[in-house]
């Protein structure tokens, strides 16, 4: 019979705690070398120990559920690291470049608020609530899609010192699409963008389903996001018709390619940038 059926909450808590205690050893092994191979033994070891009375199959089940890393579970590691690098290179939360709105320019307070909103997700809410302007700027710090924020892009350059991943326009490095396994995949993301952009438009969607572009899709956050993502990353990629955003009233700052994610000089001709 199964003694667990008479278990109380304390037993439950003990079981639950002990299940995870075993998992915590896994990353330590994995950190140094190949994680998937390193700890293939600990669950087996656990199950072999007298620690697990046969009368507690639930304990074994929990141990198995919390068992060591399985092959494939860390398959997205390089993609995650690429995303990490991309996020650091472009700390503004992935907002496509687009013309600023007139009202946003009217006050320095609004500008500061926009900087704060994109500098850190945590500060965003505070900044917006404090310095709120008539503009309904939603800070949306956790929004995965890059398409919604409007004032944020303005702070992309001054908000942080940005280490550009993309080479300067005119010096396109002819990187070809390569499989996403390698030492420094983030460096390849701009190249993947260019390779993708070089495809015929009607093939772009299809190639994103191939393994060669998987890293790009992951870094962009989805196939639908690849185009805006690449446009931010690779300045020479002009928006296509669908992605183009016409300035409504403020054509003051030219939507030059240089404004697309190339951070270095503050955009000329815009008062708020000075």
């Amino acid at each position: 019979m199964n003694p667990f059926r008479r278990a109380d909450h304390a037993d439950t808590e003990r079981l639950l705690d002990s299940a995870h205690a075993r998992v915590d050893t896994a990353p330590d092994q994995g950190h140094s070398a190949t994680p998937a191979a390193a700890d293939a033994t600990s669950a087996a070891a656990y199950l072999a120990t007298p620690n697990v009375p046969p009368a507690e199959p639930v304990a074994a089940l929990l141990a198995a559920a919390a068992g060591p890393v399985r092959p494939g579970e860390l398959a997205g590691e390089e993609a995650a690291l690429a995303a990490f690098r991309a996020a650091r290179a472009h700390p503004a939360p992935a907002v496509p470049q687009r013309p600023r709105r007139r009202r946003a320019r009217t006050s320095a307070v609004a500008w500061i608020g926009a900087v704060a909103a994109t500098a850190t997700a945590g500060a965003a809410f505070a900044a917006v609530t404090r310095d709120r302007t008539p503009d309904p700027v939603a800070p949306a710090p956790s929004h995965p899609s890059p398409s919604s924020q409007q004032d944020a892009p303005r702070s992309a350059e001054p908000g942080r010192s940005v280490a550009p991943v993309a080479p300067s326009p005119g010096v396109p490095s002819p990187v070809t699409a390569t499989p996403p396994a390698g030492p420094a995949p983030a460096d390849r993301v701009p190249g993947l963008c260019r390779a993708w952009w070089a495809k015929k438009p009607d093939q772009r969607e299809k190639v994103l389903r191939t393994p060669a572009f998987q890293m790009l899709v992951t870094a962009a956050g989805g196939a639908a996001e690849v185009e805006p993502f690449c446009q931010r990353l690779v300045p020479e990629m002009k928006p296509t018709g669908s992605a183009k955003v016409m300035p409504s009233g403020s054509a003051k700052a030219k939507p030059s390619p240089a404004a697309k994610g190339v951070p270095s000089p503050p955009r000329p001709g815009h008062p708020a940038d000075s």
């Binding site: 997205g76 993609a79 995650a80 995303a83 700390p91 939360p93 997700a121 945590g122 956790s142 992951t218």
Partner: peptide
Amino acid sequence: AEDVASETWLQISRDLPGFT
């Protein structure tokens, strides 16, 4: 799950500076 995990790590990457 793998797709959602990818999205999760993308957002973790982006929002990490805001983790307080």
